[in-house]
């Protein structure tokens, strides 16, 4: 017994200069305005606290991947819309995506043959200590010079 599935990722990256559309399934083709790019998506995490989920777009070190990093100011000012579609055996896309997620850029990292673009969901969960408070001279007086605090 065998089950087959074909999944295609469509990404729309908005940098400070322009918007770029890529997909990673239809090789050497433009599908619905999305050019092919050999990237992969990995690493999304969801937990009970509803923390931000992070994903990584992994590109080979190509000229357009380098441009994406630079145009997004080190991928810190980029926005990403990620849609996942199923593909039929005839090569047609499903009419609606399985999911569409929005992310904002966190940064990028490089290796000798790959570029990782890191993204985070834009909205974080509201925690019990919201809004977060910080020690400052107004609420604790003189601040210590080290991290040793006496909570009396």
């Amino acid at each position: 017994m065998t089950n087959e599935i074909r999944l295609a990722h469509f990404i729309q990256i908005t940098t400070t200069k322009n918007t770029y559309n890529y997909q990673n399934y239809f090789v050497q083709q433009n599908k619905n305005g999305y050019d092919f790019a050999p990237f992969q998506v990995q690493g999304t995490v969801a937990n009970l606290n509803g923390d931000n989920s992070q994903i990584t777009l992994l590109f080979p070190t190509t000229d357009y991947a380098l441009s994406l990093v630079e145009l997004g100011d080190g991928n810190r000012k980029s926005q990403l819309m990620l849609s996942t579609y199923t593909v039929t055996s005839a090569g047609n896309l499903s009419s609606d995506p399985i999911s569409t997620e929005l992310y904002i850029g966190l940064g990028a990292s490089f290796s000798e043959d790959t570029i990782e673009l890191r993204f985070n969901t834009a909205v974080d969960s509201v925690a019990a200590n919201f809004p977060a408070r910080r020690f400052n001279e107004d609420n604790v007086g003189y601040l210590p010079l080290d991290s040793a605090l006496s909570l009396r």
Partner: peptide, 12 residues
């Protein structure tokens, strides 16, 4: 259970 799942990553 022995069930096989396959995922395709490209059309060529």
């Amino acid at each position: 259970s022995g069930v096989i799942f396959k995922r395709a990553f490209g059309n060529k």
